[in-house]
Design a protein around this nucleic acid. Structure first.
Lengths: 238, 238
DNA sequence: ATATAAAACTGATTTGAATCAATTTTTAAT
DNA sequence: ATTAAAAATTGATTCAAATCAGTTTTATAT
């Protein structure tokens, strides 16, 4: 079942917003032709195969990335503990915190499918912000949106039990990334675990619980939500 | 022990940044005299007593708050579950996500001590952003800084065990809020629990553990860090 | 000053979830 | 096609941390 277009304007949209939605950003439309020229002069297009690392946490951040096509995960890795911050669809920007903090990347990103990006020079990016208020405001809006999404995930991971957390993520993937109740999961069970802050074994067991209860069907990477209402209830009750 | 001035430029600063530091923001200095005039025309100064609520999550956000004096907590409350997002010292802005998302407050805030704030009209604030690029860029910087702080807390609360999490928070309060190894805690044990995502009983028990091990001394609200190195080690080992 | 409520504390018990260990399946490489 | 490596799965066990229940202390209000 594909979601109807208005799904994001109804209450559903308010309920579920823990991952980024691939909506069209008018960001670059705020630039004058001359400004666009400046930005694109140093723009480089790069392709990444599934599984390839786009940037490494801690590395010097000389670029901001724009995701043209594909899906990536952004994650924090400290002493063999991994936490996936977000799943980013096409249209996302990568590395925004580096505009303001420390000139290094604060998270790593890895391509979950074959991915194309534009790589922008961070200095040009910063300069444009300082001279174009509408552009800068758009960036603020994007960062603020990311912030609110992070609040939701923060709450989910710290206040809900495993079933609630996994329900949250399945709903988010369905609404925000795949925009359908059935989809080919582009990540491993371990990724699901790192996204929900649980062990891989727990993630597998809970998927099985959901399958046994006929809430979802999952075979290999193919996932189908059978009872959306039940999944939502589990998400709410935690 | 007061920290020396360079504590924030040394490696300590990199280690510990999970709460907001009350550093001077040049934010309003970016405005022209005319713009300052516009903003201050509709500015209202308000005072809150310890324990009073400044704004409620979900309420219509017609204002942005600036913390002149005091300490507040920002927190998310959903069905009797509370999560403290941050402890905000003087100099902080409250309600920034509402500039971009949904026109409602995304968290509640409550004064932990007697507090004075400026309340700015959100529309004037937005308009200034759209016409003053330096101002807008400052806002982006502030939001980005908050984002990075939240990443740290997100990691702490999802990847570390109770002792590590509480060590993190004690260090943060010491470095960022009180700027001393000894201080009068302005919050309850329950607040500490909601800040670290654990039960109040666990927070109390772990404080006792730290006290028994002579890592801290805590009597009532008075907290003294006795062995900073050990506390840091616990923070790192999780 | 007294009553009442809230916060702080302590011990016992339960439970949710991680870890450990082993097997099967899938994927990738030669 | 064959091998090696990674991912997925399952069951048994352990452990961390929440919950529960009760007591003491500290605030707060009248």
């Amino acid at each position: 079942m594909e979601y109807s277009e208005d799904v994001f304007t109804t209450e559903n949209a308010r309920e579920i917003h823990c991952l980024k939605s691939p909506k069209e950003t008018p960001l670059f439309k705020r630039l004058t032709p001359e400004e666009t020229e400046i930005l694109n002069k140093n723009r480089i297009q790069l392709s990444f195969k599934k599984g390839e690392i786009i940037n490494k946490q801690g590395a010097f951040a000389s670029n901001i990335f724009f995701l043209i096509k594909g899906i990536v995960k952004s994650y924090i890795e400290i002493s063999n503990k991994n936490l996936i911050l977000s799943i980013l669809p096409a249209g996302s920007l990568i590395g925004l915190p580096s505009l303001s903090v420390d000139n290094v990347f604060h998270y790593s990103t890895k391509a979950l499918v074959d991915t194309d990006i534009y790589s922008y020079d961070i200095t040009s990016f910063k300069n444009l912000m300082r001279q174009n208020a509408l552009f800068a405001t758009e960036i603020t809006d994007i960062v603020n949106n990311n912030m609110v999404l992070l609040y939701d995930r923060f709450f989910s991971l710290t206040q809900k039990q495993l079933h609630g957390r996994l329900a949250d993520i399945i709903l988010c993937l369905s609404y925000k990334i795949y925009k359908s109740t059935g989809f080919e999961l582009c990540m491993s069970r371990r990724d699901l675990a790192e996204l929900t802050g649980m062990s891989t074994e727990s993630a597998i067991r809970i998927l099985k619980d959901f399958k046994d209860d006929n809430i979802i069907d999952i075979t290999g990477k193919r996932l189908e939500i059978l009872q959306l209402d039940k999944l939502k209830r589990i998400s709410v009750t935690g």
